[in-house]
C-alpha cells in the first residue's frame, strides 16, 4: 500500500518534541517518527497509543507457567509416578523453580518474537529509512497526507517554526 507522505527533518530533540506535539494538536496524522536514539516523552508528545506488548508478555508468562505445571504434574504424578523422599507425587513446591524458569523463557523469548511480528521485522528485511541522517544526527517526522484538507503549505510553515532543516513530500510504502 502506498501513500502520499509529508516528511520534515529536524536537527534538535526539542524541535522534534515540539513539532510532534504541534502536529497532533493540528489533527495531523503522524505515521511515524524516526530518531537516532530513544527520545524521552516523544511517544507522549506524538500521542502514540501505549504498547500492547506488556499484555502479550503477561499472557505468554501465564501460558508458560500453566503448561509447565501441567507437564510436571503429568510426568511426576500421572504418567510415571516416582517416590522421592516419601513426598506426595504432586508436591507443588518442587514444581516452582522450573515453572518460574519456563515462565521467564516463554515471556522473554515470546515477547521478542511478538515484537518482531508486530513491527514486521525479520532477518534479511531491508530497512526503510526515510532520510539517511536519522541513524546519526537528524530526526524525521512523517505525516500522512490523508485527504484534500491537508495543506502542504501550512504544514511546511508549521515545520519551519520548529527549525525544520528539510521538508519534502513523497510516495512511501506504509507499514500499518
Amino acid at each position: 500500500m502506498s501513500h502520499r507522505v509529508f516528511m520534515s527533518i529536524h536537527k534538535r530533540e526539542e524541535d522534534i518534541l515540539g513539532i510532534a506535539r504541534a502536529a497532533r494538536q493540528e489533527g495531523l496524522n503522524i505515521i511515524d517518527i524516526y530518531a537516532p536514539y530513544a527520545v524521552h516523552g516523544l511517544d507522549k508528545a506524538a500521542g502514540f497509543r501505549p504498547s500492547r506488548l506488556p499484555i502479550v508478555c503477561f499472557l505468554l508468562g501465564l501460558t508458560g507457567a500453566g503448561l509447565k505445571v501441567w507437564f510436571e504434574f503429568w510426568t511426576t504424578a500421572v504418567n510415571w509416578p516416582i517416590d522421592v523422599g516419601g513426598k506426595p507425587w504432586n508436591s507443588w513446591p518442587a514444581f516452582v523453580p522450573v515453572t518460574f524458569e519456563v515462565m521467564v523463557l516463554f515471556a522473554g523469548v515470546g515477547t521478542v518474537i511478538a515484537l518482531f511480528i508486530a513491527t514486521r521485522l525479520w532477518p534479511g528485511k531491508r530497512a526503510t529509512i526515510p532520510f539517511p541522517g536519522v541513524t546519526d544526527d537528524h530526526f524525521a517526522l512523517v505525516l500522512e497526507e490523508r485527504d484534500a484538507t491537508f495543506d502542504p503549505g501550512k504544514v511546511r510553515a508549521l515545520c519551519e517554526r520548529y527549525n525544520a532543516v528539510h521538508v519534502e513530500e513523497r510516495e512511501q510504502e506504509i507499514v500499518p
Binding site: L17, G18, R21, A22, Q25, E26, K44, K154, A157, R161
Partner: peptide, 16 residues
C-alpha cells in the same frame, strides 16, 4: 491553526 501552535511554543515549548 498557527495561533495554537504559537501559543504553545511561547509558553516555553515543551512538556517540562
Amino acid at each position: 491553526m498557527t495561533g495554537e501552535a504559537l501559543e504553545f511554543r511561547a509558553g516555553g515549548g515543551g512538556a517540562l
